[in-house]
Design a protein around this nucleic acid. Sequence first.
DNA 1: AAAAAACTAGGGTTTTTCCCTAAAACTCAA
DNA 2: TTGAGTTTTAGGGAAAAACCCTAGTTTTTT
Lengths: 204, 204
Amino acid sequence: MITVAIAEDHQALIDGIQSYVRYEEDIKIIGHANNGEELLKIVRLKQPKVVLCDIRMPKLDGIEATKIILKELPYTKIVAFTMFDQDEAVKQMLGAGAHGYILKNSSLDVVLEAIRVVATGKTFYDRKLHLPNTQKNSSKSVLSSREREILQLIAKGRTSHQISEELFIGKSTVDTHRKNMIRKLGLSGAGELLRYAVEKKYEF
Amino acid sequence: MITVAIAEDHQALIDGIQSYVRYEEDIKIIGHANNGEELLKIVRLKQPKVVLCDIRMPKLDGIEATKIILKELPYTKIVAFTMFDQDEAVKQMLGAGAHGYILKNSSLDVVLEAIRVVATGKTFYDRKLHLPNTQKNSSKSVLSSREREILQLIAKGRTSHQISEELFIGKSTVDTHRKNMIRKLGLSGAGELLRYAVEKKYEF
DNA sequence: AAAAAACTAGGGTTTTTCCCTAAAACTCAA
DNA sequence: TTGAGTTTTAGGGAAAAACCCTAGTTTTTT
């Protein structure tokens, strides 16, 4: 029997998972929390084999919670369950010691699979995830890494001139990158690119 | 029998809801989509009585989708189902004609309740929601309604010139509004305003 | 080694924003 | 109802930013 605790901001999703798991004979959900602090209490008390854990949570986020849990109870297996498919989020969560990483836009079957896999001591990464191998993926993306770097700054509302100063390159260079990105992405104008940049930060 | 379509970015949540609703005799989920465009197709084809709709979705957001659906099929009841408990999101969704608004951190029982209530023609607002007093809030807002209207268009990446044509006013007028908003919000430059506009649309 | 892609950049043109000023319309309270 | 304050409207010119064309250098891929 695999005992599981869920930490998840959205009660609706917890309810859904519980309903879905109810008739699985090998998995039992022994507790759930809506924030990181609650999760810690539950884990200390009930010592689940697997923790399913959102990254964005009130009070204590999933990354910090993971570190604390693994320090206190190193045999706990932790699966990150989140909407973020971003370099930083994945990197930090894995850095904290998570054993699996699945995305909320995957089906609940993937969740069950992940729980079963990490329970055996193996790791599990969502097939939709495209960035643990940071090297290869950067080349597959439409935008080059330099372009993405510049896009990050554009997303903050910076102008080409400001960006050129931050990156120690010429304004014209930033302009060129900007132009290329607009072309690659099929956009028209600086405004649309900025909009794209801000929205894509959260990986729609 | 209440027929329901779900539009939701996160497949995991759709699976959960479907599992949860399976044994409810009066509610039947006849389709689900992971983005706004898919939702439109399903709604046109199957004409559900109730649509459960996330705000943030790829391709077409919940607000735009709601407007389109209600124009084509005015008897459809739409419930916004989202993580955002923010003025702007609620206001816009209700402005688009939504009949209910529930939060993802409420339990799935609330979802069922909302579906049943709006199906009878009534409206349903999550108890956790704390801003239906639209009058007071809009006057309390820093920006005037015209300014917010323009900010909407700025958020789409439009230039002052484009906005002036859409609103049938002079470019200089849009410029002035833009300048006043930058001042009121304590920002510097068009880029930061655009960033603000895109982010604050859903108040992340 | 050649080809392709990425990164760099200058200079000139066009577009957009920014700034100052100001009038008409509307709002709300004295 | 008068008057002060706010909102919406707008012009013209200066400044800034973006856009376009071209092109050399470096890096990566084939």
